[in-house]
Amino acid sequence: MAASATATATSRADKERFICIYPAYLNNKKTIAEGRKIPIDKAVENPTSTEIQDVCAAVGFNVLLEKNKMYPREWNRDVQYRGRVRIQLKQDDGNPCLPQFPTRKSVMLYAAETIPKLKSRTQKMGGSDQSLQQGEGGKKGKGKKKK
């Protein structure tokens, strides 16, 4: 019994060292009252929990994605707005895991700055141009087949 009690105590301490970041914290479509925690000029348009996870894991954080969690102030129940990312900010001794990110705000600002550079974001923006080119190419191909 004592072993299980210590196991729960350590897991609770682990959970306490993990900070939560909801997509609403970084969303430039939200007001501060709706949950945005960074300046609007640094915020991102509709970030997802998966994007936040990808960015933070890439820089070397210990990351946990909780898909079915909802931000309490979020009234929209769509899948797009679901999820929360837990990030281990500090080690057992209280020192930051990554020295360049001492605070939760530094992590949020980094995530907001890096998300627009993700391949999934850049492909979506360039995707409309590519689909137009593909459509034109398809027409040319059909013309060749008719001959």
Rank of each mutant, 00 (worst) to 15 (best):
A111S: 12
M70F: 00
V44P: 12
M108P: 13
N68G: 03
D41K: 15
P39S: 10
E16T: 15
V59A: 09
R17Y: 01
F101E: 00
S11H: 09
V107F: 05
A5N: 10
A112Q: 07
K69W: 00
N95G: 06
D78P: 08
V63T: 14
I38H: 05
E16A: 15
E51R: 05
L98T: 02
F18Q: 13
A33F: 13
A58C: 07
C97N: 01
R86P: 02
A5T: 12
A33N: 13
N27P: 13
T31D: 02
A7N: 10
N76C: 14
I32E: 12
V107D: 00
G60I: 08
S11Q: 14
I52G: 02
P47T: 04
Y110S: 00
A58N: 10
M70P: 07
L98P: 01
E51D: 02
Y81R: 07
S49Y: 05
D54K: 15
K90Q: 06
P72M: 07
Y25S: 03
V107W: 04
E16R: 15
D41L: 15
F101I: 02
K42Q: 15
R84Y: 05
R84K: 04
K30Q: 13
D54T: 15
P39N: 11
P39W: 07
I40Y: 00
N76I: 03
A111I: 12
N28Y: 09
T8Y: 09
R12F: 14
T31R: 02
L89R: 09
P99L: 04
V107S: 00
R104A: 08
P47F: 12
E66N: 15
Q91R: 10
R82E: 07
K117C: 09
K37I: 09
C20K: 01
Y25P: 01
R36K: 13
A13L: 15
Q80I: 11
R84I: 01
P72Q: 08
E51Q: 15
N27G: 12
I32P: 07
P23T: 13
Y71M: 07
E74S: 02
Q88K: 12
P72V: 10
P47R: 11
R36N: 11
M108L: 09
K69Y: 02
V55S: 01
I19Q: 00
E113H: 12
V55G: 00
A9V: 11
T6Y: 10
T50C: 04
E34D: 10
G83C: 04
D14G: 14
C20V: 11
A111W: 02
V59W: 04
N68E: 13
A24Y: 06
D14E: 14
Y110W: 08
L64V: 14
S11C: 08
Q91E: 06
V107L: 06
M108R: 08
K67I: 11
G60T: 05
D14Y: 15
C97A: 05
A7M: 10
A5Q: 10
